[in-house]
Amino acid sequence: MAPNGRRLSDYIRRLGNLEMNEGAFALILILPSVILTLGLILWPLANTFVMSLHESNLARPQRQDFVGFQHYIHFLGNRMFWETIGRTFYFTFVSVGIELVLGIAIAMLISAKLKGWRFLRTAVIIPWAVPTIVNGAIWRWIYNADYGALNGLLLQLGLIDKYIAWLVEPHRAMNLVILADVWHSAPFVVLIISAALVSLPVELYDAASIDGANGWQRFTRITLPLLRPAILVVLVIRTVEAFRVFDIIYIMTRGGPVNGTMVISYLTYQETFSYLHLGRGSALSFIVSAFIFLLALLYVKVLYTEDVAV
């Protein structure tokens, strides 16, 4: 590419009869992407930030009072806000944790190439291919108190003696939403871990077998350490995604009962689009971004400071 690029730059120089140095030429080349980045990322970000400092209501566009950091102070001193943040962390850690354990287990199962592994590999991906909205609708039907599949199954197995209204109790509702999310997202973990497993060197396992290591030892001493980069990638992506969870909540519970499944993204949506408080909504989204940024920072620190490459 380099010779080609030089020839092209020479041609442009001759054409415009301009003495252009490498720097200016580079600038021209990156200009389109700089404009796109500014226009699509930085400008909206700055705009949102400015909005978060104002009392801004979509239904009252004539009033735009500057209030400084009042919205941030309002939320950071609000009990309901912290309960929502707590619930969001609970959702994030429990669902990502289960997904990770389950994902690695299924990936190991596939890589063991037992009978029917090809079928398993395909079948496992299906939930991930289902749109989140559809997934939410499916699980809402499964949990339905009067004609849901879960009640039908448990009743026929004799585990319950009458139908249960599953989503009525706030904490249980949260756990059941997590279950639905795990069903949907664990395949993603399987996918990434499976890909990493394929590329692991076979010699290490051969050597370990010769040295007399059993299966569990091979898993904990060889597989897991070698999988660490893949696990970190999965962790970062899934944590950020789970922290921003919205659609499955919107479809299944709308934050209820008693705000038992009210997570931070749903609260932001409610402030912004149901109450039309654009200022408060913007402030909330900045607070959410701050939390995600901190989480990402934590992961990046682990990712780059430790000897991950092995």
Binding site: N144, A145, D146, Y147, L167, V168, A173, T253, P257
Partner: peptide, 18 residues
Amino acid sequence: NPASITSAEEDVRNVFSQ
């Protein structure tokens, strides 16, 4: 019905229609 706590009008219709 305890499911009332998670029911909208359509859920009411489904239960009553059953």
